Simulated scan of single mutants.
Amino acid sequence: MVRDDAPRPHRLGLLEGDGIGPEIVPAAADVLDAAMAAVGGPGIEWVRLPVGRAAIDTHGTSLPAETVEALEALEGWLLGPHDSAAYPEPHRSQLNPSGALRKHFDLFANIRPAKSLEGADAVVEGADLVIARENTEGFYADRNTHAGTGEFMPTPDVAMAMGIITRPAVERIARQAFELARERRGHVTVVHKANVLRLTTGMFHDICREVAEDYPDVVVDDFHIDAMAAHLVRRAADFDVIVAENMFGDILSDLAGELVGSLGLAPSINVSTRHGMAQAAHGSAPDIAGRDIANPIAMLLSGAMLLQWLGARHGTTRLGEAATRIDAAVASTVRAGTRTADMGGQAGTRAFAGAVADAVR
């Protein structure tokens, strides 16, 4: 019997989404393909799956059951932005595709880096931080209950929302943050509002401090959310890993993205213990869709984060090497003066991604 030892390609999902998604997601896939080829890896088999407005038109839902079923068999995927505000009813009032996938797959950690790029006209220079955002509960009502949402109206004139904090959720995002810090500069900052929300964010703060005892090599400090926003503006370069509940983490990561250049540069990955979803932090930008002017950097870097996560999960160095090549190629391309319109350049989406792919090779 002849044994087949040829490495098999990595099967990853490709969900383009809405607006600029069909432009930036394929661009990211091309760059990931180039990076895997450059490191001699087995390559990627892309599994295209319907999602978003196009899926409403073809399947009657923004997130078809066949898409979710296919993703169950995959370890990771690229998800483009969604424009759920423009969906027809009843789809507009339902949980959007991103939130539904995070909830279904228990993607509890939303990891959002913010790093200044030379040539990106950053508001603050020298920033290199990561926000570890708890992704399943907190003060975002769309994903903090088992069924339905945490918002309700007992009368037409009263609207209420529940903010839910649980020990297991805080412990696992805290450990994610401390493990990240050990790989970086060994500093974790806990964000809370324990002076006002004493029981909820107070418990978040206390549990993070308890987890910190298992990481004596990591420096820990903490700030109230309002003070933290000011500290990011004044001295973003001083922070390493920031851990926060859902809403606080979302707000801080958008602020950090703008401080280092724009949300067009802001990548993210959503992970559980089994699945990883690469998703740019920005929206679908329908006003520029189809014009080949969207900045694909956030999606490219999100794809690199997915490769890095897969490499760490499997102990595979080539995936990490491919991710490092993409990060370096994006930085060198911007530094060399090739930039999209939002960064003051003239390169289109395809041209910029092509330049990054050339740099990767």
Results as ranks from 00 to 15, higher is better:
E151R: 15
F105H: 11
E183F: 14
T166N: 14
M160T: 03
T200R: 08
F105D: 02
A127D: 03
V130H: 04
P154F: 12
E125I: 08
E134V: 13
G186E: 00
A120H: 13
F152W: 14
V130E: 00
H146C: 10
G163Q: 07
N144Q: 04
A181Y: 05
D128H: 12
S98A: 01
V188G: 10
E118M: 11
T149S: 10
E171G: 01
K115P: 07
M160D: 05
N110Y: 00
E137Y: 10
P154R: 12
V190L: 10
A161I: 11
D157T: 10
H187K: 12
N96A: 05
S98K: 15
H187T: 00
H104D: 02
Y140V: 12
G126T: 14
H187P: 02
E183C: 09
E171M: 02
R112T: 06
P154W: 13
R102H: 01
A127N: 03
G138N: 14
V130F: 09
R143D: 04
I131R: 03
H91V: 00
N195A: 14
S93E: 10
G163D: 03
H91F: 03
T136D: 04
L95E: 01
P90K: 01
A177G: 04
R112L: 05
P97D: 00
R175P: 12
A109M: 00
H146I: 11
Q176E: 11
I173D: 03
E118Q: 11
N144V: 08
L117N: 05
A194H: 06
H192E: 11
A141H: 14
D106F: 15
V190G: 08
R182Y: 03
P113V: 02
G126A: 13
I111M: 05
T166I: 11
H146K: 15
F178Q: 07
S93H: 06
A181C: 04
R182V: 06
A161P: 10
R167I: 00
Q94S: 09
E179F: 12
T166R: 15
S98I: 00
R184F: 09
P113Y: 15
G138M: 06
Y140E: 06
A114W: 04
I131E: 00
H104F: 00
T189Y: 11
E134D: 09
I111W: 11
M153R: 12
I164R: 15
V170R: 09
L199K: 15
I173N: 03
A120T: 05
V130S: 07
D121L: 15
P97W: 03
Q176R: 15
L117G: 02
D121R: 13
P156W: 09
L197T: 06
A141G: 13
N135F: 14
L129G: 08
R133I: 00
F105Y: 14
L95G: 04
H91C: 01
A114D: 01
G148T: 04
Q94I: 01
M153H: 10
F178H: 06
G163Y: 03
V130M: 02
K193A: 07
E183W: 02
H91A: 01
N110G: 08
L197F: 13
A181W: 10
H104K: 04
E183H: 12
V188T: 10
A127W: 04
N195K: 05
L101Y: 09
A132E: 02
Q176F: 07
L129A: 05
G148E: 01
L199I: 06
